[in-house]
Design a protein around this nucleic acid. Sequence first.
DNA 1: TGAGGGATGGGACCA
DNA 2: CCATCCCTCA
Length: 717
Amino acid sequence: MSLLANLNPEQLAAVTLPNQSALILAGAGSGKTRVLTTRIAWLIQTGNVSPAGVLAVTFTNKAAKEMLTRISAMLPISTRGMWVGTFHGLCNRLLRAHFRDAGLPQLFQILDSADQLSLVKRVLKGMNVDEDRFPPKQVQHYINANKEEGRRASEAEAYDEFSRRYAEIYAAYDEQCQREGVVDFAELLLRSFELLSKNEILREHYRARFHHILVDEFQDTNRLQYRWLKLLTGPGSVIFAVGDDAQSIYAFRGANVGNMADFERDFHVENVIRLEQNYRSHGNILDAANALISNNRKRLGKNLWTAAGHGEPLRIYEAQTDGYEAHWLAEEVEALNRDGLARREIGVLYRSNAQSRILEHALFSAGIPYRVYGGLRFFERMEVKHALAYLRLIASSEDDSAFLRVVNFPARGIGARSLEALQEAARAGNTSLYNAVPQLGGKAGNALGAFVAMIATLRKEAEGLALPEIVEHMLAKSGLLAHFQAEKDGADRLENLQELVNAAALFVQEQEEPVAQQELTAFLAHAALEAGEHQAGEGSDALQLMTVHSAKGLEFQAVFVTGLEEGLFPHEQSRNEDDGLEEERRLMYVAITRARSRLYLSFAQNRMLHGQTRYNVASRFLDEIPAGLVKWLTPRLGSQPLPQPVLASARDAAIPKALPRATQMGWRIGQNVVHAKFGQGVIVDTEGQGPDARLQINFGRQGMKWLALEYAKLSAA
DNA sequence: TGAGGGATGGGACCA
DNA sequence: CCATCCCTCA
């Protein structure tokens, strides 16, 4: 059977497993997606299941699309009827189909996290809550964390005045969502979980339907997602879970690796298959990754190997400053480029977004095209959000969030006072802001009345119009176009608004069957669930810049991992978290395994961060890579400051101004020292004079210490 | 209403 | 250093 050709024995075993739940531990680059999609195709081709009996779930839209593309390529059937999508996408589908049973309006809207935050702020104001004691961002996190544990406000911990207040806010927030007919991301999951758990008929229906449930990136599932999967699995269904505990890097957003162990137990998994043959990287790179990750105590255990050769050693570069690091990187990229390696085949990775600035500066000066991943995406842009708010209001009068967003944008002279009166009227009449407008008199009533009349007209005129025309019409009549035309830097925004019309047209075109009057709502859901790629320039040959997190799942011929310094990578904050350092190490593991044949690891002795120069020691992760696998591009002086590299233009380099000043009894900032107990460190700051003098020293993994000069036994390194 | 000053704080991500 | 928020003032 051609489907199974070229699979290795473990992959073959995984693809053709009998009908039992199974866990596939798939190492980086081991053909995880291939196994998952081939499994689906094989199940269908052998008549084990019909397409309608398959549910496959992922985390990102990109992964879901990739999955569908691959399945279509393998099977000559339509993928319609198959449920393939993200957790949120599938929950949305479920809730749309059973909105009544779920207690939702038919046209419920989806809030993205920015929408959610502004709703939280509004609720806090309405309750007269002190925003210093209850910061909106924290409240938002509290609500989401509870929902992701499956807890409603009534079940939230309330053991003192403070936590009771939190629970009250949570309750008020949920009530407001219900009133407005809006649903946040976590709510999509929780609501559909509750729907299935309370409604036996529905639950049994779906359990009988989905015989095969397949889960991608299983290590990233949170508790609620796990329970959701469990609920959906009937006696005649099995789960095929694919994941890699070593690539679990999302604990901070609720991912629970423990789900892998729970899964083995709860589903009596007899088959744990390890995919350890790596088809991506050379041996030295894999050996480095294996050695690094072996420092983690919590592991399910796996060793990547390759049939390819050892390849080159890993290259380590030590720079004096972040500026020199960036400059070196640019030159190296140019050299690789001259040797025939395309720029798009080179990935530049960093731990935090703030690092991209100096890299961009150096690349820009060198004239190297690059593309930065991350940042604002299309549907999150301010002008697009405004346009979407008008569309939401056209779709539903209950949507107070949308109302408040655009009631005075473009400016119509409706200020805070008018809105306060309106909110009071709405509360009294127990109705939405939109519907409360007729109760208001006076000047405020007139301005608001005109706004409501405009929306009503738009709604009426929208009947019978195609979606793109509705959008176009709204842009003109709302005054959005005029507003940005008048703005001096509004050209980009106008372009984005035009792009929104195109997006609507494309959306209509991609619909398999027309959904007529619900098309607008479907489009709005699409906008919330799929915020869209943020930039053009996909096709051009540009260097790829991104955080290590967003590099997960990608691969490059050559990879630069920059900023390998204690405090940055591993990140300072990870010290205070359970399992923090291990997660950082897994992140480093992800970074290393992105490279096919060449891997650069670089760090800087001092770096500008938050406006001041910081003196760091090399990341412990560098020490965890066996010396035999690496080649130092800079002399391995270890502790000595490097000689100043000669640069064509000095302005490209951030040379620390603090360096020449602040010397203290023979010690100076930036100097490397050795302490009897703490080992090697760097002097970061000094304080006091004479016998009281103290030095602040960064001892890397031993932490930052203030030491009294008189007592500390320091020697120059 | 909006421009501008001053304080503040700063990890990573997707839906 | 930088972006963001809040407040003040014209």
